[in-house]
Design a protein around this nucleic acid. Structure first.
Length: 467
RNA sequence: GGUCCCAUCGUCUAGAGGUCUAGGACAUCGGCCUCUCACGCCGAAAACACGGGUUCGAGUCCCGUUGGGACCGCCA
């Protein structure tokens, strides 16, 4: 059995978007599942639109997701000679020809055809003129005028195209650079790609590519066209539908496992299973379980998965991921141990790392400020004495942990006959400044005796000042 | 306009002719739990686009209609 080789060929003209990431993931999973190779190829033949920044972003996105590659990145811009050779071969065998038509000319004819309601195909003006190479000339592929080309697709099944629908596409531009349909074929041939897994927006290109394979005398790889991801209005996913850049989600506090898990289940399924580890995905992934219909990107489910992975994740690992978000808020924390404990109290309460960083603020502030409404309601005069009792009770406590703290707290509560809610909320506001926080006793334990006592004292001062 | 693809709850999907009074998940709405907020647990509402066939029997096969999408560049 031949080694499976798949590839992901982004064009460095923009960021890594959701759809591209899923395509990369499917290719990667397929290669990993079959113990094959996953190749990264940069399709940068559009010199004007390609940029280094876009390339960096794409690579960063892939790395963040944990999609690694075995070969590459190869750059098409560094392989110009190869495309030239293959184009020559077609020229020599009469499968391609020089065309002198100007872009302006073509544009005009295209408009005319469209206006007439015709398919805007190249009319073959230079096809049989036997022209020579010339300045600004391009090479066109001599596409058969009749017959059918059938794509045996692993997902869509057998799809048939009439060759007369296809026209003589340009394979080498006047600047000597190859065009997409030609470059992919030459690359996939020379890189020994066995399976081409890509969006079904490419299905219409496939017969042209198959014809080029045939003209060149090479067997075609297996094709698998996966349905596209659409926006909520069922049109091609774009910025209009919200963030579509993978890295944007990183910045919004999403963890990579959530994104990966979301992506893999969009279009692919394994029975009723929703949660997959990377290893499970690799183990279970198969083209057979990919659906045929397009899917709609659903940010809410992504968010749910994110909260799931935050809930289930290792606190230490999450703490490390949280650091940049804390830093961004002005807390350049060093003590990873402390952050880990903080994370443990926040895992079930945060859907994103941004949420978590926000909710964690009170753990890192030197002096907390009381939310006005909360203070008015819960830092009432009668709490002054209660806080003092609590201070006295906690003062000599050892060890200072949540079990011990709760005992002290309960004692005072029964003694004073205060309602649990009033007491707890009062202390909560004193310690965190707000009415919403993790469980009171875990907060005390994480904060530590010193901070707790200090904050209670500050709360007493606040109440006294208000009298 | 032409070509191609697609069609199960709002969304992602399970379903490979009888086990479907159509299952799961997200979201939504109730309830329970509770020191707040969450988590969790329990429950509810919610779909086979339509019309013809084939078959003893169709969500599942075929055809058509409708609807949606993609592609038609010296972009990828």
């Amino acid at each position: 059995m031949q080694e499976v080789r798949t590839r992901f060929p982004p064009s460095p003209t923009g960021y890594l978007h959701i759809g591209g990431a899923r395509t990369a993931l499917f290719n990667w999973l397929f290669a990993r599942h079959h113990k094959g190779k996953f190749i990264l190829r940069i399709e940068d033949t559009d010199v004007a639109r390609s940029s280094k920044e876009a390339l960096e972003g794409i690579l960063e996105g892939l790395r963040w997701l944990g999609i690694d590659w075995d070969e590459g990145p190869y750059f098409q811009s560094q392989r110009i000679g190869i495309y030239g050779e293959y184009a020559d071969r077609l020229l020599r065998t009469g499968k391609a020809y020089w065309c002198h038509c100007t872009p302006e000319d073509l544009e005009e004819r295209r408009k005319l055809a469209l206006a007439r309601g015709d398919k805007p195909k190249y009319n073959g003006r230079c096809r049989d003129l036997n022209l020579e190479r010339a300045h600004n000339a391009v090479i066109r592929f001599r596409s058969p005028l009749s017959g059918k080309t059938v794509v045996e697709d692993l997902i869509k099944g057998s799809v048939s195209f009439d060759n007369e629908e296809l026209d003589d596409l340009i394979i080498l531009r006047s600047d000597g650079y190859p065009t997409y349909n030609f470059a992919v074929v030459v690359d996939d041939i020379t890189m020994n790609i066995t399976h081409v897994i890509r969006g079904d927006d490419h299905l219409n290109n496939t017969p042209r590519q198959i014809l080029i394979y045939e003209a060149l005398g090479f067997p075609t790889p297996k094709f698998a066209h996966v349905p596209m991801i659409l926006g909520s209005d069922r049109t091609r996913l774009s910025k209009r539908h919200g963030a579509t850049s993978v890295l944007a989600y990183k910045e919004m506090g999403y963890v990579p496992q959530a994104m990966i898990n979301y992506l893999v289940r969009l279009g692919w399924s394994y029975g009723d299973q929703e949660i997959f580890s990377m290893d499970e995905m690799i183990d279970k992934f198969s083209l057979d379980n990919i659906g045929k219909s397009s899917g709609i990107f659903n940010p809410q489910k992504l968010l749910w998965l994110n909260s799931h992975y935050i809930k289930e994740g290792s606190p230490y690992h999450l703490a490390k991921e949280l650091l940049p978000f804390l830093r961004k808020k002005g807390y350049p924390v060093e003590d990873l141990n402390y952050v880990t404990k903080v994370v443990m109290t926040l895992q079930t309460r945060s859907k994103t790392l941004v949420d978590m960083a926000n909710a964690a603020e009170f753990y890192f502030k030197e002096e907390i400020t009381f939310e006005k409404k909360a203070a008015k309601r819960f830092l009432s005069p009668e709490m002054r004495e209660v806080f003092q009792m609590l201070i006295n009770g906690l003062h000599g406590l050892y060890p200072f942990d949540k079990v011990m703290a709760e005992k002290v707290f309960r004692d005072i509560q029964t003694k004073t006959n205060l309602s649990m809610t009033a007491f707890a909320q009062g202390v909560r506001v004193a310690l965190t400044g707000t009415t919403v926080s993790p469980g009171l006793f875990e907060v005390m334990e994480v904060l530590g005796k010193e901070r707790v006592l200090h904050r209670l004292e500050k709360a007493i001062e606040y109440i006294e000042a208000g009298d």
